[in-house]
Design a protein around this nucleic acid. Structure first.
Lengths: 343, 343
DNA sequence: TGACAATGCCAAAACGTTTTTGTAATCTCG
DNA sequence: CGAGATTACAAAAACGTTTTGGCATTGTCA
């Protein structure tokens, strides 16, 4: 095993000093090295397959070229994957690497992990949750550029990005209204989280925009699972003047709504239109008929978080007024579960 | 912002040399420092909230304390999450951090990413795929400890861990046989991948173990989606002597089988038992009735990969004969879709 | 031709650790 | 009591970079 080739070996091979090699490879300003030597050094370096040791350069520059990505959970949904993917793609463009950790919701674990990240001299940290939540930013993070993804911290002065839940819900319901539906049930969940509140607000806004009165009886809350969706939908479909369309809090509840529709002998979309939320491919794409739903912008949030972080890292000491709180759109993914109401 | 506290500050505060601080904190052998000073130094360090710079120590020790985790895709399923979680939990115990990358299946991207990992001086690399595959190990990895997860490389001398597909399939089918079924349909897929071949082998072994003749007509292949499962199951259920139970290649095909059963007016599990594979919580847990299925050991593969890697890193120069190829069990996750056949 | 600037390169310091080597001071024991 | 061993610490080198400051050499211009 030939010992790793370092800048010194390159210097020796090119017949110049390490200084010159560094200058030549890093295209340093101020004409420190002639074009000719620069070319030669670069050629030699390439030929020797030289790649600078990032540990060493990080030590010298006070820039590790890594950023920590810490999230509450990663396991159960594909959301994490999409968000991480977005972050990675963005990081790649900036020459950054992602150091991944997850806390499993345990505050002590979280603290230990942040310490570990700091020891490794990460240049910044993305603090992410897999479901849109409000969080407290750990004290430890105050010393280092931090961005929240799919989470917001109303009090803290950190930038954050979350889905525009309200606008998404409004789009979903508008889609149904545009198809001609006027009695639209909302199968929602019971948790007091931003998504619940804001999607309900979006639902209300949408119906009112179309001049339809908001009817509380059409909004039924249950657990946000297929079973909960089944119960809520079953109830709605048993109403005297049953809704002709259902907007579901998420795709799992929509799955339950499908089961309820089947039980009630209603075919989708001919006799009942359904629209979900989240765009869990694995559910939405596999239901029969395939489910029209709203896409949560996890990928885009990952991208945004990294780009914002990169800016904050570059800026020497962030002007305190530059905290950004961004809402990202939830686009409609149109499949086969929406149709005009049957006359 | 107080400039970061380094070993020098601690030394000054404790009134000793940096050498002594290092010795005291790292519990170095050979009685280099008196118990008394050691205690004092440790107290001072704790109080000053000193945490060694891992970049610097990594540079000195030629050990970064990071390992690269590179996978083909990460997005669509929760598998990635479980595997990464396993790897993380194991890494945490060893004091290692995970540097995550994914190639999106592009060989050029992959090469660039491996180079990036090497520049960052990772101590080892986990090369993972999200679906059990046979892979070629990139040439670049030959210089660094590498372990394959959910992938195997028949030719190469790297350790690897994959699910025991055959045994898993055998267990699944045995479960149905034990419940009393004798005509068991196999809804399988068409791809020529290890999972397809080995699960079929497991199916055959299981039925023979129970003295049941293997009937090729009961094995129907389609695309491994709900739609494919629907078609295959519809065909099987239309057979003269229709099977009383269905073993499905994965949970998505099982979802299709549910739809086929509903279309044929058969209730699950009373008139038809179904068992899946993969244990995609989001499907298996939300189907009605909940789906009994086999769990893929992604978490465990992640753990195993890191532990094996850690060993290979510790061992100076691995004895070439130590390549391990491990099969991990796929346990049964029992829910509500299996019952004795109706008489 | 002499002063001065520009050019092209190098030596050395620095980043924050760990480890090797050195050296006083104390202890052990014949 | 003196030689060797042990103890407790410190100085310095090393890990592989980047950057600062300096120094020759060459070119420019009055």
């Amino acid at each position: 095993m030939s010992s790793r080739v370092g800048i010194r070996q390159v210097a020796k091979a090119a017949g110049v000093s390490v200084t010159t090699v560094s200058h030549a490879l890093n295209d340093v300003g101020g004409a420190r090295v002639s074009e000719e030597t620069k070319q030669r050094v670069q050629a030699v370096a390439r030929e020797m397959n030289y790649a600078p040791n990032r540990l060493a350069s990080g030590l010298r520059n006070q820039r590790s070229g890594t950023i920590g990505f810490i999230s509450d959970e990663i396991s159960t949904t594909p959301f994490a994957g999409r968000m991480i993917l977005g972050a990675q793609d963005a990081a790649k463009k900036k020459g950054l690497l992602l150091l991944l950790l997850n806390t499993a919701g345990d505050a002590e674990v979280e603290e230990a992990e942040i310490r570990a990240l700091l020891q490794h001299q990460v240049d910044g940290i993305v603090y992410a949750t897999m479901y849109h939540r409000e969080v407290d930013v750990p004290e430890l993070l105050s010393g280092i550029p931090t961005v929240l993804a799919d989470a917001s911290a109303p009090g803290a002065r950190v930038s954050s990005v979350v889905p525009d839940e309200e606008r998404g819900a409004r789009s979903a319901v508008s889609e149904l209204l545009a198809a001609g539906h006027r009695r639209i049930g909302f199968v929602t969940n019971q948790d007091n989280i931003p998504a619940t509140r804001q999607r309900l607000a979006g639902y209300k806004t949408a119906v009112r925009e179309y001049g339809v009165a908001y009817e509380p009886a059409l909004v039924v809350a249950h657990q946000s699972t297929a079973a909960g969706g089944f119960k809520a939908a079953t109830h709605l479909l048993s109403l005297d003047d049953r809704p002709t369309a259902l907007f579901c809090f998420n795709d799992q509840m929509a799955m339950g709504a499908y089961q309820a529709a089947a039980a009630a002998g209603l075919s989708i979309p001919a006799e009942l239109s359904v629209i979900g939320f989240d765009n869990l491919e694995i559910i939405a794409g596999n239901l029969l008929p395939a489910l029209t739903t709203m896409q949560l912008p996890h990928y885009e949030m990952g991208v945004w978080a990294i780009e914002q972080l990169d800016q904050e890292i570059a800026r020497p000491a962030g002007p305190d007024d530059s905290v950004k709180r961004v809402l990202l759109d939830c686009p409609l993914v149109s499949r086969d579960s929406v149709a005009p109401p049957s006359r």
